[in-house]
Design a binder for these strands. Structure first.
Length: 351
DNA sequence: TGAATTTGACCGAT
DNA sequence: ATCGGTCAAATTCA
């Protein structure tokens, strides 16, 4: 086993132990700071592990994030030339941003809309999105809507998604996600767990129904909690391991801030053993990092819901979780549960 | 009145 | 030159 793998296992093991520690702390009266510290440590471990998987090597470096790339200071500080005009710098920044965005993790989720429920149109995925464009796509019957995270400017979150009604089945929306959410959308959970929202969960989609350009996503309850209103069909479309191991982050509400809603959350977690399911839930690429309530394909299977997996670039060619052209996807969802037996030393995973 | 959406223009990739 | 993705001014909404 080489140094790379050892470091990787060390980081993942550390992350697991920290997570267990955090779980124990949830039952105690430990301070918020303690729990936040644990969360930060967990995130740090996973970030390092992801870096190793992405770039290899033993030395863990800090690669610039998108937000830092887009920061004017980043380029100002990184450019050795002082005589570069502002315009040149701006142009270069723009080019690099485009390049970087092209390398963002990307995956597609298909959302089947159940007619007659009053919930036509893709339900929100728990994040707040703002529409920034719409395009007619060559060869497609329906336009494609472009959405970015509402917190793009306030928190520098660069997650985006594209929503397009399927040509084959207009009841299916193909949602392509790009980039991870780096924002903290605490309202997602707080709202979701409020008794009122749970009571009135089915709601307010009427305005947007049956429009491709519809999925207006203002802060609303987590629909993953009522996933029976839709089927999710997910697919992988990325060579980026972050799709498989999306950054695991807790919104504020997960961490706890002492308010009533959070108490409800904690009770809910204890009652339903939510934490025990997080390890599998958070690997759901379609819901990315903090969508801990999302159903993974495994869950869907367990519920007897069919799912197909396909990639846009493969032109709808059916594939499976274990049939990916890229090596990372060979880590099938069935195998990934952050079990201590996770086969990191399997050479096949590194091809 | 601020936030969200619409839509034509612009830009980079191919 | 064309296409997909993004920007940003205008418009609409709450």
């Amino acid at each position: 086993m080489d140094c790379e793998q050892k470091t990787l296992i060390t980081e993942l093991t550390q992350g697991k132990e920290l997570a267990e520690l955090l779980r124990n702390n949830l039952n105690s009266i430990s301070s918020l700071d303690t729990r936040q510290f644990l969360v930060e440590q967990i995130l740090s471990s996973y970030e390092k592990a992801l870096f190793l998987l992405n770039w290899g090597g033993c030395a863990v470096e800090i690669k610039p994030t998108i937000s830092t790339l887009e920061s004017p200071n980043y380029y100002a500080n990184s450019s050795p030339k002082s005589d570069v005009s502002d315009q040149d710098c701006k142009d270069q920044c723009q080019k690099d941003v485009y390049k970087k965005r092209k390398t963002e993790p990307r995956w597609t989720e298909q959302v089947k809309v159940c007619s007659g429920t009053g919930l036509e149109g893709p339900l929100e995925d728990g994040y707040n999105w703002r529409k920034y464009g719409q395009k007619d796509i060559l060869g497609a019957n329906f336009p494609r809507g472009y959405y970015r995270c509402t917190h793009r400017h306030s928190q520098g979150c660069l997650a985006t998604k594209q929503v397009q009604k399927s040509d084959q089945d207009p009841t299916i929306f193909e949602v392509t996600y790009r980039g991870r959410h780096t924002c903290l959308q605490a309202s997602r959970l707080a709202v979701a767990l409020s008794p009122a929202s749970l009571k009135n969960d089915k709601s307010k989609q009427d305005k947007d129904s049956c429009q491709v350009e519809q999925p207006e996503q203002k802060p609303k309850p987590l629909k993953e909690l009522s996933f029976n209103f839709r089927e999710e069909v997910k697919s992988q479309d990325s060579n980026n391991v972050e799709d498989i191991f999306p950054l695991f982050s807790f919104p504020d509400a997960y961490i706890g801030n002492g308010n009533e809603e959070n108490d409800i959350f904690k009770e809910s977690m204890m009652e339903n053993d939510f934490l025990s399911s997080l390890s599998s839930a958070f690997i759901s690429p379609a819901t990315s990092d903090s969508s801990c309530f999302a159903m993974t394909p495994c869950h869907m299977n367990s519920l007897g819901i069919d799912h197909n997996v396909r990639t846009p670039e493969s032109n709808l060619a059916p594939t499976s979780a274990t049939n990916s052209p890229n090596g990372y996807w060979d880590i099938s969802l069935d195998n990934v549960d952050f079990d201590t037996n996770f086969p990191l030393d399997n050479p096949e995973l590194c091809t």
